[in-house]
Simulated scan of single mutants.
Amino acid sequence: MPLAEAADGTALHYEVHGSGRPLVLLSGQSNSHRWWDPVRDDFAAAHQTLVLDWRGTGASGRPDTDSYSTPGFARDVIAVLDHAGIDRAHVYGTSMGGRVAQWIAADHPERVDRLVLGCTSPGAPHGVERGPEVRGALGQPDVAAARRALLELMYTPGWIAERENGPEEPVFHTLGDPGMPPHARRRHLRASARHDSWDALPRIAAPTLVVHGTADTFNPTANAPLLTERVPGARMRLIPGARHAYFEEFAEVATPLVLDFLAENGA
Score class of each variant (00 low, 15 high):
Val100Thr: 15
Arg130Phe: 02
His47Pro: 02
Pro122Asp: 12
Pro122Trp: 06
His108Tyr: 15
Gly97Arg: 05
Thr49Arg: 00
Gly139Ala: 15
Ser60Asp: 09
Trp54Tyr: 15
Gly139His: 07
Gly127Arg: 04
Glu133Lys: 08
His108Gln: 13
Val112Glu: 10
Leu117His: 11
Pro122Arg: 10
Gly136His: 12
Ala59Gly: 04
Pro71Val: 14
Glu133Trp: 09
Gly98Val: 03
Val91Phe: 12
Ala74Tyr: 04
Pro125Ala: 10
Tyr68Met: 06
Pro122Phe: 07
Val112Tyr: 12
Leu81His: 04
Asp64Trp: 04
Pro71Ala: 14
Asp113Met: 02
Gln48Lys: 13
His126Cys: 07
Val134Lys: 04
Asp107Leu: 15
Pro109Thr: 06
Gly136Gln: 14
Leu115Arg: 08
Leu117Arg: 12
Arg88Val: 14
Ile86Ala: 04
Pro63Cys: 03
Gly72Phe: 02
Thr94Pro: 05
Ser67Glu: 13
Val77Ala: 11
His83Gly: 07
His83Asp: 15
Ala79Cys: 14
Gly58Glu: 02
Ile104Leu: 15
Gly61Leu: 02
Ala79Phe: 01
Val100Trp: 00
Arg88His: 14
Asp82Cys: 09
Arg135Phe: 02
Gly136Ile: 02
Thr70Phe: 05
Thr70Leu: 13
His83Glu: 14
Ala124Leu: 14
Thr70Trp: 03
Arg62Asn: 00
Gly123Asn: 11
His126Met: 11
Pro125Leu: 11
Gln140Phe: 08
Ala124Val: 08
Phe73Ala: 09
Gln48Asn: 05
Val134Phe: 09
His83Pro: 04
Val91Asp: 12
Pro71Asn: 12
Ala59Thr: 01
Arg88Ser: 13
Asp87His: 12
Ile104Phe: 03
Ala74Cys: 06
Ser121Gly: 08
Pro109Met: 10
His108Thr: 02
Gln140His: 09
Ile104Asp: 00
Gln102Leu: 13
Gly56Ala: 01
Arg135Tyr: 03
Ile86Lys: 01
Arg62Val: 00
His83Leu: 03
Arg114Phe: 08
Gly131Tyr: 03
Val134Pro: 09
Leu81Gly: 03
Thr65Arg: 13
Ala74Val: 05
Arg130Met: 13
Val77Asp: 00
Leu50Glu: 04
Asp87Trp: 04
Arg99Val: 08
Glu110Ile: 04
Gly61Ser: 06
Gly85Ala: 07
Gln48Arg: 15
Ala79Lys: 02
Arg99Phe: 05
Asp53Ala: 10
Ala74Lys: 04
Phe73Ser: 01
Gly136Thr: 10
Val116Met: 10
Arg62Leu: 00
His108Cys: 11
Asp142Asn: 15
Thr120Phe: 15
Thr57Tyr: 03
Asp107His: 10
Ala105Pro: 05
Val77Cys: 11
Val112Met: 09
Ala79Met: 07
Met96Trp: 06
Gln140Cys: 09
Asp66Glu: 15
Val134Ser: 04
Pro71Glu: 12
Arg135His: 08
Ala89Tyr: 05
Gly127Trp: 03
Ser95Leu: 13
Glu110Asn: 12
His83Arg: 14
Ala84Ile: 03
His108Ile: 02
Gly72Gln: 08
Ser121Tyr: 13
Val100Met: 05
